[in-house]
Design a protein around this nucleic acid. Structure first.
Lengths: 329, 329
DNA sequence: CCGCTGTGCGCATACGTATACATTCCCGGG
DNA sequence: CCCGGGAATGTATACGTATGCGCACAGCGG
């Protein structure tokens, strides 16, 4: 049915191994032979079988990116990761984290990928430990399991959140609210810890009815704002766990006739492109996701080439002041 | 290094083929034997090698989704496709269309996938024809090459665009503008044709300085609105090739102090979630992307199981009236 | 004229799984 | 008591590529 290296060999009048060597650029093949083989291969439209190659070499030159593509943060990582892998001769396959973990686990362990970039690991997930045990090179991007053997590239989430708290406190806010992400993700947890600590340092704390929780999605911002602002003593500022939540909160504020930043200040996190749109102009924390993604890709490639790589790194963040914050009147 | 079926066989005191049969649920294996094998496999953490399996069976049970993940439309298709494939025992891998076509082509032909869902095919691309020649089952989703052997699931883009034109004309608009997508995509071309035809039927035409072109991205809406509204006789309504473009145009209108729909009406296409956000509320055309995606997945699976499947289908669209359109005063 | 070196290629085999075919064993019918 | 037959498992091999090793031959020095 499909054309194999044997077919090419027959037509070129050589043996199958010679075809393999010629096409892979083995120097010991005579120039004339290689040219002939390449021509025959092109005529037949020969494409080497990846399963055959993988089985023989025990490597696939493929790296999985495990992500949740419903979350608009992740598509922004695809480009930098893909390009960096491509520069090193690796292909990237995207693995949609969806439902059953077991399927994802099996997919990473069935020798169809050489490594993985994990972007959705929950802090209580056993995936990182499993991959360590199985010796599958991986990097955590924008997440950290905290395991000893795990490489992890994240933003300085604690520091960024702390700078938000300091900004708001400096503007005179005293009743402050927050819409955090799931405590099961390191990103949400770190941002929450950073924010609470900085508030604490200023002698403040979050009232229970000024806190909402969600999964970092638009709808969580919508719901969170409604809940928090329906408090008998609503806060004058709300910290949002990420920009999508902030955008949801802004839209809901518009819906409810709440003025931002007149009635309430809103700050986000990540500085996604959407945060800078004229109708939002969200004050937020910039995270250099592209650099983090490239570094993650380099780290995996380094591991695959047997190099030692940095164990963990937190990238600095930067406060971006736009127009959703104001001082207390 | 890694555990193979041979290792399991040795420990279970059977032959390698027996392990293979037992784990795949072959009925001829005695219950006691299977139980023992399954226990040993679990103890050793045996995961069958996908390259080995693929080589032997000449099938990978994997289907590629070729998409451009920078475009926010595509992530919405991931979920429905993934889930439908999963129901039929197939896995989905995402292939980021990026730069060199040759890499994508090779990836589809190297026997690492059984089929493909193409979402980014340009009308002048040779990919569909190549896949037909190579007998690789595929479906075009949200795009159509128009080739005889190609299955294609799209929205009724011509009809939807025509209904936008009729809406605007019915509201009394006479000077109408448009921000279209790349003419190289069937989606953009069909929407443009439908819009122009319906205008023509009403005795109207698009002035050259009322037309802009882009690649369906946010920035194209920003630029398009600026260009079109700087015409000496700006239009009173602008048709946008999709919702992201419409949102870009709305943001730029806000930036420039242009009132929507007071100064100019704006309509979009697709009805992405963002179009319904309170700060936009875009009048648009609903496309049932989830149904299309599920149908596309079913079509591929049907082909893989040797069934005949529908060659092409255009899904009906529905006008969604929100608040970015108004009648001419 | 012989042996040595190196180039260019073929031979044999490995990778891990699936499956057609062969074999063994046990049971029951004649 | 023998033999047919089915159940349960083993044997042999195929899938397509990569690679260690060996062989043939040309060129060259002695």
């Amino acid at each position: 049915m499909s054309v194999t290296s044997r077919d090419v060999a027959r037509l070129a009048g050589v043996s199958q191994p010679t075809v393999s060597r010629a096409l892979r650029g083995d120097g010991r093949i005579a120039e004339a032979t290689r040219a002939r083989i390449e021509q025959v291969a092109a005529e037949l439209g020969y494409v080497p079988s990846e399963p055959g190659r993988s089985l023989s070499t025990r490597s696939t030159r493929q790296i999985a990116m495990v992500a949740d593509f419903e979350n608009p943060l992740y598509p922004t990582l695809v480009g930098p990761l893909h390009d960096t892998f491509a520069e090193h001769g690796y292909r990237m396959v995207l693995l949609a984290e969806r439902g059953d973990d077991q399927v994802t686990y099996a997919r990473l362990l069935d020798r169809s990928v050489d490594g993985a970039v994990l972007t959705t690991t929950l802090v209580d997930s056993s995936l990182s430990q499993l991959l360590i045990d199985r010796r599958l090179p991986f990097v955590e991007l924008n997440r950290r399991s905290g395991l000893p053997g795990a490489n992890s590239l994240t933003a300085d989430n604690e520091g960024g959140a702390a700078s938000c708290a300091e900004l708001l406190v400096g503007l005179g806010h005293r009743r402050i609210g927050a819409i955090f992400g799931q405590a099961r993700t390191s990103t949400a947890r770190d941002r929450e810890n950073g924010f609470r600590s900085a508030l604490g340092a200023a002698g403040l704390a979050l009232a229970d009815d000024h806190v909402s929780r969600g999964s970092f999605a638009y709808e969580d911002g919508v719901r969170g704002l409604s809940e928090i602002m329906s408090s008998p003593t609503p806060p004058t500022a709300i910290f949002c766990g990420n920009d999508m939540v902030a955008v949801g909160a802004l839209n809901q504020a518009l819906n409810l006739g709440i003025d931002v930043p007149g009635d309430v200040s809103i700050v986000g996190f990540d500085d996604l492109a959407i945060a800078s749109w004229p109708c939002f102009r969200v004050t937020t924390v910039r995270v250099d996701l592209a650099s983090m993604a490239r570094a993650a890709a380099e780290a995996i490639v380094g591991q695959l080439q047997g190099r030692r790589v940095v164990a963990a790194k937190a990238y600095p963040t930067e406060l971006v002041l736009r127009r959703t914050h104001a001082s207390i009147s």
